[in-house]
Simulated scan of single mutants.
Amino acid sequence: MKRPIHYCKSWSRAKKKPTELWPAGKAEAAHLHRQPYTALVGSAERPYCFVDVAANVVVVGFLDSMLRESLTYAFKEVEAGKLFMTMAVHRDFEADTDSVTGGVTYLFDRSGTMRIRREYFRPHRAETAAASCDPAPLYDMRPEFGQYDDIIRVERQ
């Protein structure tokens, strides 16, 4: 099922709403000129996720039922039109609050090295590890305007 897409200047994580909704034409012009804009996938008020598109970076923020950013993927353009996921962050929240209790950050490099940092905030402690991974699934193409289905895939195997 194709989800509707809405456009805006950005998604306010603190206010949990779009800043300055834009008509598609304005967002498309920003896309063509490699200027920043945000695509909201699903509803403008309760999106499934948002896609921040800028000159050389694309960030996807997946939202939970309380509009908290529970999962984030950051991609960097490494060749013309070719993206590589450099980071993934998963956050845990305290019950029905916006208070982050901990999370895991994965940093990837193109050679297949993965660094993992698990953090707990009450009390604060952190664990780090390194591992190898197949970097092939971490590549993606820079999305065409309005075509975000591939970049918003949660599973990247």
Rank of each mutant, 00 (worst) to 15 (best):
K2D: 07
R3P: 13
Y7A: 02
C8Y: 08
C8W: 05
C8D: 03
K9L: 15
S10W: 07
W11I: 00
S12H: 04
A14D: 13
A14T: 13
T19Y: 05
L21D: 04
W22G: 03
P23Y: 12
G25C: 06
K26I: 08
K26Q: 11
A27V: 02
H31E: 08
H31V: 06
H31W: 11
L32G: 09
L32T: 06
H33V: 13
Y37C: 05
L40M: 11
R46M: 13
Y48A: 13
C49M: 00
V53W: 00
N56L: 09
N56R: 11
V58T: 01
V58A: 00
G61D: 03
G61Q: 03
L67K: 08
R68I: 00
E69H: 03
A74E: 09
K76V: 09
E77V: 04
E77S: 02
E77P: 01
V78P: 01
V78D: 02
F84V: 03
M87K: 11
M87W: 01
H90W: 04
H90T: 14
H90M: 14
R91V: 14
D92H: 13
D92G: 05
D92E: 10
E94W: 11
D96Q: 14
D96Y: 08
D98Y: 04
T101G: 02
F108T: 01
R110L: 09
T113K: 15
T113I: 15
M114A: 01
I116A: 04
I116G: 05
R117N: 13
R117I: 12
R118S: 10
E119A: 09
E119M: 09
Y120I: 12
F121C: 03
H124A: 15
H124T: 12
T128R: 10
T128H: 02
C133H: 15
D134I: 05
D134C: 04
R142H: 07
E144G: 13
F145P: 00
G146D: 03
Q147D: 09
I151F: 10
R153E: 12
R153K: 14
V154K: 07
E155C: 11
E155F: 09
Q157M: 15
Q157F: 12
